[in-house]
Design a binder for these strands. Structure first.
Lengths: 96, 96
DNA sequence: GCCATTTGCGCGCGTACATGCACATGGACG
DNA sequence: CGTCCATGTGCATGTACGCGCGCAAATGGC
C-alpha cells in the first residue's frame, strides 16, 4: 500500500486496525499513545509526531519501505486495484 | 529500504540527498521546510511532523510503501544486506 | 427500537516544535 | 595558509502538539 501523505497513512492505519479486529482503545494501548491522538491520526493528521506514528505501525505489525518513486507496472498493486474497482461498482449501484 | 523508526528515516533521507548531489539548503528549499529542521530530521528526530517528512520525501522523489511485517526471503534486500556486510567488515578492520 | 460500544471532537494544560538567525567546526580547494 | 561552503547546534519566538477528560454522535448487535 503506497502512502503519499498523512491522510493515506491515517486511512491505512484505520483499515488495518479494523482488519485486525481492534478498537481504537485496543490499538492506542498497544501503541502507548492517547486515543485522542490516534483518532486524529486516523483522520489524516498532518502534524502527527513521526515517532508516535511508528509506534502505531509497530503495534499493527506494519513495516514501511522507502523506494524511489517510479511509474509503471511495478506500481500496480493488483489487490488494491481490484478493491478500488469493486468500490466504484458499489458506488454506481447506489447511484443507479 | 526498510524504515523502522525516525532514525532510519533520517539516515535514509541523508543518504538519498547526498546520492542526488543536494545540500541541505537545496533540499530544504525544494521541500519548503527549514534547514534547521532538516538537519534534525536527518539526525533521527523522533518528534518531526509527518506532513513535513512527506514533503521532504517527495522532494527527493521517494515513495513510502506499507506492508505487513513478514520475516523471510522476501525481506532480504540484497543491496542492503551487502552494505551491512561491508560495514561490518569495515568495523572489524577498525577494531583489528 | 433499545442498548452498549465505539468514535469524533471541544477544551485546557504543560511542554515543545518549526522557524530564522548566528556562530563554530570540518573539509575541500587554490 | 586563507577562504569558502556545508553542516551541526544554541537561542528566542509564536504557535501548537499530545494528553486526558468528558460528552455527543455514530455504529453495530439483538
Amino acid at each position: 500500500m503506497r502512502l503519499s501523505n498523512p491522510r493515506d497513512v491515517g486511512y491505512y492505519v484505520r483499515d488495518q486496525r479494523r482488519e485486525q479486529g481492534m478498537t481504537q482503545s485496543d490499538l492506542c494501548a498497544a501503541a502507548e499513545v492517547s486515543r485522542r491522538w490516534l483518532s486524529d491520526l486516523e483522520s489524516g493528521k498532518q502534524t502527527a509526531e513521526i515517532g508516535l506514528v511508528f509506534k502505531v505501525l509497530h503495534a499493527l505489525r506494519l513495516t514501511l519501505v522507502a523506494n524511489p518513486t517510479t511509474y509503471g507496472p511495478d506500481d500496480l498493486d493488483l489487490d488494491e486495484y481490484l478493491r478500488r474497482f469493486d468500490h466504484n461498482d458499489a458506488g454506481d449501484a447506489d447511484h443507479a
